[in-house]
Each structure stands twice: as C-alpha cells, then as structure tokens.
Design a protein around this nucleic acid. Structure first.
Lengths: 189, 189, 189, 189
DNA sequence: TATGAATGAGCCTTCATTCAT
DNA sequence: AATGAATGAAGGCTCATTCAT
C-alpha cells in the first residue's frame, strides 16, 4: 500500500498512455479508463492535465536519477563509473520501460514547467560532473561533457526504442557490446 | 515562384509546427496562421490532417535519404562511407533542421500510414546494407547493423537536439570530434 | 421525473426542430438550445446526429403504430376498421403534431438506416394487410392496397399540414366529412 | 437555345439535387458539378443559394400552374374540370417528376421568400375558385375548398412518391381508378 | 472521497461566397 | 463571361474541466 493507491494508479496509467501516444494524443478519459478511476477523480489529485504531466515527469526523472546515482562508485575510476551508469540505465530501461520512453519523449516539451526543466538539468549536471572529472584525469576525451552525454544517452535510448519496436533483440551480449561501443566513443584513445 | 506557392507554404508551416509541438499538439489553425493561409485552404491541398503529416513525412524522408545517398562513395572504403554519411547528416541537420527533428519525432508514430512506414524502412535498409558490407570486410564490429545505426543515429540526433536547445555550440571542431567518436563506436578495434 | 429527463428533452427538441427545418437544416446547437442542454450533452445520449434522427424516427413510428393498432377492432367490419384508423390518426395528429410531421418529412430519406426503414415498412404492412382483408370481402375497391394507403394517408397528412399553416380550421365536423370523403375514395361503389 | 444555356443548366441541376436531397442537404458544389459549371458561375446568375431556390420554386410553380391551366375547360362541367386537372397533374408528374417533387418538398419551407409564397397561393386560388364554382352548382361536396384540394393533391402526390420509390407501378388503369377514387372523395353523393 | 453527467471552448472539416485571372 | 482557388464562418464532434450527488 503506497502513499495513495488511486494517485499511484493514475500516475501509472498516465505514464503508460503518455509513453504510448504522447501528451496531446492522450485524453483524460483514456487515463481514467486505464487507471480504473472516474475522470473526475484525476482532478482530486492533480490540478489539471499539465500539472499531471509535470508531476509525472518530475517523478520519472527522480526515479531515473536515483537509479543511476545509488551505489555510485564515487571512488572508482572513470571506466567503473561509466559501467555503473550504463548498466543501471540498461536495468532501468528493462524495469521501467515506459518511464524511460516517457522521459525521452517529454524532455524539452513546450508543456513542461520550470521546475520540471530544472530537475532535468540538475540530473544532467550530475552526469556532466562525473564526465568532467574523467576528463581532468585524462581518461576520456576532451569534448564538451554535454556532447558526450548526448552521444551515450542518444545511442542508448535509440537502441532501446528499436528494441521496443521489436526490430532488435537486446541480448546481454549485445548490451555488453554496446557498452563497449559507447565507452569507445568517449574514452581517450 | 515555385511549382505551387501555397502548398509549399503549408508544408513548411506544418513542418515547423509539427517539429515544435508534435502532431497532436499542432492544430490546423496554427498551421494556417503560420502559412498565412486560410484554414480551409489546407484542405484544397491535403485531404485531412493525417494525409498532411504523411505527405510531409514522406517528403522529409525522401529529402533526407537523397541527401545521404547522393554522391555516395560506392567504391570507397568503410571509413569513407561513414564519413560521407555522417557529414551529410550534419549538413542536412544544419540546412533542414526542422525536417530532421520532424522525422525523428514522427518515425514510428501511430498516425503514420503504411506507405510512410515503408519509405522509412526502405531508407534504413540502405544504411544497413552499407554496414553489412563493412562488417564482411572486417572494418566494423560484428554487431547487428540495426544496433550500430541506432548508436550513430541516436548519438547524432541527440547531440543535434541539445544544440538546438542552445545548450551546446556545434563548432566544426566538435562535429569532427563527434564523427571520430561515432566511428570509434562502431569500427573494429 | 421521467426515466431520463435530459434524453427526453433532447428528443423533444430534436423532434421539434427536425419537423420545422428538416434534418440538414437543423444544427446540433439548435437542438441543444431548444433542449436547454449543452451541445456536448447530446453526444452522451446519441452517438451522432444520424443516430439521433434514427432513434427519433424509430420512436416516432412506434408511437404512431401503437396509436393506430391499440384497440384495433379485429372483429369489426371494414368500415369500422377504417373509422378506427382514421380517427386514431386524427387524434394522433392533434396530440403529436410534430411527430406526424416529422415522420412524413423523414420517411424515405437518405439518412435513415436499415432498421428505421424496416420499422416503417413493417408498420405499413399492418395497414396493407387490413386493406387486403377488406378487398377480399368486397367492401373496398380492387386497387393495390399501397395505392389506397397513399390516397388516404396522403390526403390526411396534406390536410393536416394545411391546418398547421393556419389556412384551414379542422373542426370535428370537417374531420368527420373528410373521413367520409376518404372512405368514399376507397369503398366499393 | 433557351434564354441562356448556363442558367438553364444550373436550374436543372439545382432542381435535380434539391428534389433528391432537399435544400439544406444540397451544396453549391454539388449543383455546379451536376450542371458542369464552375461554382462561381452560379453566382453570376443567382445572388445566392436562397435566391436560387426561390427562382427555381417560382419557375416550378409557374410551370405546374401553366400545365393545369392551359386548355382549361372553362365551359365544361365540374367532372370535366376535375378530369382535366387530374390528368394534367398526372402528365406533369410523368414529364416533370423532379419539378413536382421539388414543389411538394419546398412549399411552406422556411427559406422561401414572400414572392414564392404568394405565387404558390395565387396558384392554389385558381383551383380553389374552380371548386367553389362546383360547390355552388351542387356537383361537389360542401366542404372547404382548401380541404378538398388537400385531399386530392395529397392523395395524388403521395401515390406518386410511392411510385417513384418503385413500390407501386402506376399503370394507366391504376391512374384511371385513382382519378375515380379522388372524384368520389369530393363529388356530391 | 469518488464519481460521471454536464458543459462549452475549441478542434477538424465543410461550404457559401468572393475575386483574381 | 467563366472559372476555381481562396477564405472564414459555422457545423459536427471531442475533451478538459466542473460539480452535484
């Protein structure tokens, strides 16, 4: 029994529908149906549709962020840090598929409020900071950290989308190889 | 004076709006305003909103495909082919920013028709085929071509999005470095 | 408080407007206004405008049919049966003026669905059957029953329309005389 | 070569479409298509759609009126006059089917202007006058002439509609019998 | 607290009408 | 004179939001 069952149900339903059809393509009745809840009930928990996406986005980013940050090998070397992030991303994608797709589809959208954007930035900063350390150590390339994040994150998410479309099987071997690929993309040569 | 000014205007306006707000977040009046055209006029050129996105998507994929395929170094080695594709992608992104963003946001969407999906697949096959050749030659990794495409394309598009958000300046030096990164991600080590 | 007030209100409003201005000349907002209901509310009770006319038509035919059939003098002679039908028609026209006008204006229209047409035919068959019996008994002319129905129904409805336009007063005496006229038009001479 | 070929074409097309789908169910493009004329051309001959129906209605009433009045047996007795009217009505219905259906569907509609209504009344007066004469002579019943017109006209038109629907074959014998029926409905017994 | 009926703004689309050619 | 492209008001319908129960 979570904080509130109905609210959870609504958030889960919204997550699923937003991931599937996007914000504007999802209606409140769709979410209510999926959550087995009356349409009016949604408005007891969220001021309006926009508040709902923003809540959801912030939750999602927090979850994602926590997944990558917990047990972070602060003392490890860059390769270990990279492995941690990459593997956690993989586990997260498996376990919270819709959350990842939702975050990716939603980040930067016109309906996000300031807090959502800030949270996302703050999360990015963490990764950026780690890469900055790696750069100082000469372990990874001398390239803007934002660029390296884009490369790794973009590659990973695209691969995951293709996998979700059923066009590719993401075996552990493949994921290992992709990790290597991405590491090769940013490590110092 | 182009073949048809109004139709062009509508397509350009739709491209811009769809890239900015997505299909469901864009209304016909928005497109009409942007195109400096009456809302009804759009229906002289396109049967309905869905026909319009599909037309636009097919045009866009064709343009993108042509950009990558023209002057393709069929006789060149894998590295040259990769360079061709990557640089053309970069030039395309600069020149047809909205087109690239639109294609990325739209591919795989529920409102695309069969023809749109086929055209996109056909284009992907071309790239896949090139990678398959490279694999046989032992120049690039032994990894599903679809995975390698995802890595390079995903990395590139993500970087481009970040650049569009103004969070990163895509200098020629950076693009050169990113090309190297992406090549490192797929080349045989 | 009827079974459902709003649905009744909508049906009554639609009946009035359709009788007054026809199907295509009546807009959903007109019906909503007349029913003192929001336009959207209509769609909670009827899938669309066409479903609404068809529901209304089927209701109307049922009411009309019931009015003519209840207490039908199955054992009576043809003159009694005719009197029953004619007088019931008269009472119905007085009580459900708009229903009669609506049925008359709507029967055979391109927007009626199969069920509506079937119901109307089925109702007609009943009258036809009674006339067939009368013909066998030699009480009424040897003329296609459909022709006799057309004569009596056509005469009656036209008279009623003229009365509704205020151009004629339909006194009980007149109605009695018209009944006689119509009977003379079909009885065996 | 009539007064103007295009105008004729438009009127004929409008007649056909209005008879088939009613005023509000008929669009200007439908009429233009049917008339093999540009939509704009219609506005060179008629101020707007309402002017067009009214013109058409007035033309139609005139044609109908002329058909019934020409060679009218002013000197004949009531039965001959009735026969004239009834047969001319029959011939008119055969030859100008759409015109009759259009007049019937249109008379009394909300979009007719004063002149249209007046013309229709004036035409009715003629028939009414003849019946009044017949009444004075004691040949037909002592019933409001408007009522008798309704009976005969209503019966006739209804029969004709049923025939047009293909549900009844209007043989000369039947028409003769119906004439007798209608005469029986109004003659003095 | 939870619901879902009710609402009306706004969406997609059509069509009467205009006007440049 | 004739056209048909262009327009925007208005129609059918949806859906975010409210509110009585």
């Amino acid at each position: 029994m979570a904080v509130n069952n109905k609210q959870e149900d609504i958030l889960n339903a919204a997550l699923k529908m937003f991931a599937l059809r996007g914000y504007d393509g999802t209606t409140i009745p769709m979410i209510a149906d999926e959550a087995n809840v009356g349409a009016g009930t949604i408005y007891r928990y969220f001021e309006n549709k926009q508040t709902l996406v923003n809540s959801l986005f912030q939750n999602s980013v927090r979850t994602f962020s926590d997944a990558l940050r917990s047990d972070f090998p602060v003392e490890g070397d860059m390769r270990q840090k990279f492995a941690h992030i990459f593997r956690r991303m993989g586990e997260f994608a498996e376990q919270y598929t819709e959350t990842l797709l939702f975050i990716d589809a939603t980040a930067g959208s016109y309906y996000l409020d300031e807090k959502s954007n800030e949270m996302f930035q703050e999360f990015m900063s963490f990764i950026e900071h780690q890469l900055d350390i790696g750069k100082k150590e000469g372990k990874i390339r001398n390239m803007p950290s934002k660029a390296m994040i884009s490369i790794v994150y973009g590659a990973f998410v695209q691969l995951f989308k293709v996998k979700c479309n059923g066009m590719l099987e993401a075996t552990p071997e493949l994921m290992k190889a992709v990790e290597e690929s991405c590491w090769d993309a940013i490590r110092m040569h």
